[in-house]
């Protein structure tokens, strides 16, 4: 699902114009910023191009090389920020972090190989020649991120509570409670009370204590958790 950075070469007007958008699926152009240089990872700055911000993604198209362009979905942009400290980077810019598909030995690959694997680029800087536009760009990026929330993957569970991820602790409580109840009914049914079935009074006593413990801890999630692990 998460695609990271990729190549983008679809231009209108015989390959010299604006990027081709997925308009039939509602993709719209939100902002165009001319004269923006791009820096991928620790690589050198690339010749200026034009930044197109759509309702789905960022598209950067080179002004020099018509076959060159990059795009990244807002879904893959983990973080963006305005970077102004000249000590950290020579020019004021928009700094982005890109979520990539984790790969065990990709660190060495990106450092050493000549062929650039765009999908492993984790950082991208966009350097507009007009640095007064940085705050505007930052806001447009925010807007784009808000237009692209995570797609809901598990419709069924989501429909149940609307936000099932919030209350894991309480859900544990409920599950724990159900399990306890099952144990209760077993221990309370005459046939399963070990102490009585074999006539040994001494064995019935620990069983009774266990029940008391369960009852006492019924409402405290952590303790239920604790006693559950002990029981199993």
């Amino acid at each position: 699902m998460v695609a990271g950075l990729g190549e983008f070469t679809l231009r209108t007007g015989d390959g010299f114009g604006k990027p081709v958008l997925d308009e039939s699926n509602g993709e719209e152009l939100m902002h165009v910023q001319p004269s923006v240089a791009v820096v991928l990872g620790n690589r050198p700055v690339e010749s200026p191009g034009t930044l197109y911000i759509t309702s789905r993604k960022l598209i950067w198209l080179s002004d020099v090389d018509m076959a060159k362009g990059y795009a990244v979905d807002f879904l893959s942009i983990s973080l963006h920020a305005v970077s102004r400290d000249p000590e950290a980077y020579s020019s004021p810019c928009i700094y982005t972090q890109i979520e990539v598909v984790e790969d065990e030995d990709d660190e060495s690959d990106t450092e050493s190989t000549e062929v650039l694997d765009l999908s492993k680029i984790r950082e991208m800087r966009l350097v507009p020649s007009d640095s007064s536009q940085l705050d505007t760009l930052f806001d447009v990026f925010c807007e784009g991120a808000e237009l692209n929330p995570e797609p809901v993957e598990d419709e069924e569970e989501e429909g149940e509570s609307g936000h099932n991820w919030v209350f894991n602790a309480d859900q544990m409580d409920v599950i724990g409670g159900v399990e306890e109840d099952a144990e209760w009914s077993i221990s309370q049914s005459p046939t399963s009370v070990i102490g009585h079935s074999n006539g040994d009074e001494g064995l019935a006593q620990p069983m009774l204590e266990l029940q008391i413990n369960d009852q006492r801890f019924e409402d405290a999630e952590e303790m239920v958790h604790d006693s559950e692990t002990k029981n199993h």
Binding site: I77, S78, L79, H80, A81, V82, S83, R84, D85, E87, A88, Y89, Y95, E99, E123, F138, F141, C142, A145, P149, E150
Partner: peptide, 14 residues
């Protein structure tokens, strides 16, 4: 690289 950053927007999902 984050040294130079004074304000940022973080995607909720990350």
């Amino acid at each position: 690289h984050m040294l130079s950053v004074r304000n940022c927007f973080i995607r909720g999902s990350v």
